[in-house]
Design a binder for these strands. Sequence first.
RNA 1: GGCGCGGUAGCCAAGUGGUAAGGCAGAGGUCUGCAAAACCUUUAUUCGCCAGUUCGAUUCUGGCCCGCGCCUCCA
Length: 497
Amino acid sequence: MALDLFNSLSGRIEEFAPAEGNKVRFYACGPTVYDYGHIGNFRTFVAVDVLRRYLRQSGFELMHVMNITDVDDKIIRNANQRGVPIGDYTRKFEQAFMEDMGTLGIEQPEQISRATEHIAGMARFIRKLADKGVAYQTEDGSWYFRIDKFPEYGKLSKKDFAGMIVDGGGRMDADEYEKDDARDFALWKAPKEGEASWETEIGPGRPGWHIECSTMAMEYLGESFDLHAGGEDLMFPHHENEIAQSESLTGKTFARHWMHVRFLLVEGQKMSKSLGNFYTLRDLVLMGHKPSSIRLLLTSVPYRKQLNFTFDGLTQSANSVERLRNFKLRMETSTWEPGANAEVAAMAQTAIGEMRASLNDDLNTAQALAAIFDLVRDVNAAADHGKVKKDDVPAILTALGKFDEIFAVLKDEDAAHVKAIVDWARAEGLEEKISPETLEMAKSAALSDAQVEELVAKHSEARKAKDFKKSDAVRDELLAQGVVLENTKDGVRWKRK
RNA sequence: GGCGCGGUAGCCAAGUGGUAAGGCAGAGGUCUGCAAAACCUUUAUUCGCCAGUUCGAUUCUGGCCCGCGCCUCCA
């Protein structure tokens, strides 16, 4: 059973396999660190995270490279407004982005690279393009890529440029006034007053948008690699330009497989600041939503489908996560009769088989989720009828573990993450944005698991002695600290609110 | 205008040429010192509309209506 993945380059679903052995070498476009990451950014990063987790579960070794774009127009503009060097400005948002990745359970790529630390490599790249006659310098010192030297231009985004009128100098953009062809794109921008600039072998200036990805991808992955991913908007012009400059240089296929994640909608509309439906991850947490709810909602719709991100959906996802966690808790805390039931063991096998078959089908996460909920329902029903035996439980927990290797929502770390965001909001003077629900969720972060267990034991002891006054008091104490204690016929269990 | 995607129960959403996964919400029930929760059962004669192909279409073809995306350094 192999992974079938849609390839934007061919426009078809193809079996995905690395070119060399067991190692998958891939590149995913990372963030431009000019602001806090928003929920749309994270749909893409979560989708790539599901891919990498699934590849690893499938036995592949990974070399995943992600760039941090820490120099661009917006960064320069914003840093200038604040009167700080761009490095000071970007460091803060890069740090925030890394924290947000952790909050959402997104794994770190094997290699994270900053654009500003690869300037020399980019200049060398452009020099080589110039040597090949596909790059030219204009009078102001900027460098451009000559599109008409790359006949395959448009092959990824399926744009047909044949017959297009390409007169030079048609546009008088400040940055582009001397291009030979309207389609030519900037490889290198000449220095301007008040802008960051580097001295390089091709002259002073700063890199254009696309050159960083080609340069860093080749540095860490080689001239040709397995897969390149990013948001759908990057297909054109960004990825198209990466292909043009890279393949012009090497004559080899740049990335064999391209994956593009579709944009999400927020409350049925394109997310935009003017519509007032623009949310960063931190906004959502401060409004009272758990990171795990957000992650599940983001993964519940396959990456090539438009996802409608709604607050109602967030509530639904929160409840779904609850159900999954409760099931796991039941498996872990109940007492079981000795023995084994082949029927139950088979349920675990089936669930994982179906989950993997679904993910193999172009990462159909919605269907994979259904397989796990089937397991939850079937095993719960079996347990209600006393059909689950002691020896069946490890197989079920293993299945849940396999599920969580991909979806990463079972382990409850919400309180700690929420707490960190509350602390951040206070430090930033955003106190008024913190909702009561958020505070409630953060509460239990003050208690470690061991501390909770201690109190739970105290409660159970008192309860066993039928000292209900005392047991209730302990339960109330826990609740006040954000921990819910439940007595069920299967035993006592607790969870964070 | 060019290219592309989608319209499935109250909401989110999968899927197949043979008659509709899953989740959430709702309803009923079980359990329980109290709480709270949990669990179980149940919920679309029907898949935007109209034709066509077919023994049979939600699934294929054509048309129409509606929503959405990219084509402007926004993931």
